[in-house]
Each structure stands twice: as structure tokens, then as C-alpha cells.
């Protein structure tokens, strides 16, 4: 198994975090993983992205120009990375704030209303988790439990009370792409 992924969005949308959670989850499941952030002069409101590889085999290049999956949380990310999806790959679009459709026809496209899902859960911060839920549903690259273990590690025991909310967001994101 090999998944190459690019997570992209506005700074502050939590794309680096969901990429990291996937990397942790993969590691917990005994996979080889790498997480590489774009680290230019980034700022809140600017664009941010990270490349995440999850693989059974040792990872050759952690630097991705093309990826099996692209996760676009905002329009500039879709514009920049739609062409980077490998043929037959998957493109995840945050349809709450991206009002255009994908132009590629050789890939699978998932429209995930991340912000709407988060608003329904009364916490706009979990929009990224809804997207991660959809990604996990479509790829099975890692188990939801492993992602929640990773989140618990990142949050620490003091903030463990936030786990159920994040779990709900992941499940709602997954449900949103089930046919």
C-alpha cells in the first residue's frame, strides 16, 4: 500500500494538522510515513500545504510533485493542485467555500461540505476534521481510531474532552461522501 497526499488550504484551516494526524495514524499502524510542510514565508490567511506519504515500503522521495490524493480546502489550493493528482487518483474539494467544480475527468472527485458539517456541530474549527473523515472513508489509508489516538496525543489529556466532537466531525465527513 502506498498513498501520496497533498493537503492544501488557507493558513489557519488546519491542513498541516490533518496531514500530521494522518502521518501519526499511519505510524501507529506500523506504516512508513513522512510529513513535509511547505515552509516559505507563510502567514495566517496565506496558503499552506503539506505532503504526506503513507506506505508499507520504505519511502523513497518525501517530496511530491504528483500525488494520489489532493485535499483542497480553498479555491487557490484547487487551482494550484488539481493538475497534480495522478490519473485515477482522488481529489477532495471543500465545497462549502469552493464554488467551482473540478475540470479533470480522469480522477475521482469528492465534494465535501466541510464548513457546513462543522457549523452543524457548532464548532467551525472542526471543518478540517470533516475533510479528514471523507479522506479516510475514500482511501482507508488509516483507521479512524488511529487518527483519534493521534489527536489525543496532540491535544494532551487536558483537552481530551474535545475528542468526541472531532470524532463526530470525522464521521459526518465520511457519511457525506457515502453514496
Amino acid at each position: 500500500m502506498l498513498w501520496t497526499n497533498i493537503f492544501a488550504g488557507f493558513g489557519g484551516q488546519g491542513v498541516l494538522l490533518i496531514g500530521q494526524l494522518l502521518a501519526y495514524a499511519g505510524m501507529y499502524e506500523g506504516k512508513n510515513v513522512s510529513w513535509l510542510p511547505s515552509y516559505g514565508p507563510e502567514m495566517r490567511g496565506g496558503t499552506a500545504n503539506c505532503s504526506v506519504v503513507v506506505s508499507d515500503e520504505p519511502i523513497a522521495s518525501p517530496v511530491l510533485s504528483m500525488a494520489d490524493c489532493v485535499i483542497a480546502m480553498n479555491t487557490p489550493s484547487l487551482d494550484k493542485f488539481e493538475s497534480c493528482v495522478n490519473p485515477g487518483g482522488k481529489l477532495f474539494i471543500n465545497s462549502s467555500i469552493i464554488d467551482k467544480k473540478a475540470t479533470r475527468t480522469d480522477i475521482e472527485v469528492y465534494y465535501v461540505p466541510c464548513n457546513e458539517i462543522a457549523e452543524k456541530l457548532e464548532n467551525p474549527k472542526v471543518a478540517n476534521m470533516a475533510m479528514l473523515g471523507a479522506y479516510l472513508e475514500a482511501t482507508k489509508a488509516a483507521k479512524t481510531e488511529s487518527v483519534l489516538d493521534a489527536l489525543l496525543y496532540k491535544l494532551g489529556e487536558k483537552k481530551a474532552k474535545l475528542i468526541p466532537l472531532n470524532k463526530e466531525a470525522i464521521e459526518a465527513g465520511a457519511a457525506s461522501i457515502r453514496k
Binding site: 505510524m27 512508513n32 510515513v33 513522512s34 510529513w35 513535509l36 510542510p37 515552509y39 518525501p62 517530496v63
Partner: peptide
């Protein structure tokens, strides 16, 4: 280099 420095790996 910057990649080794900024990348996370197990």
C-alpha cells in the same frame, strides 16, 4: 537541508 530539517518522520 531544509527538507530534512522541516520534515517529520518516525
Amino acid at each position: 537541508d531544509g527538507i530534512i530539517g522541516q520534515m517529520m518522520e518516525p
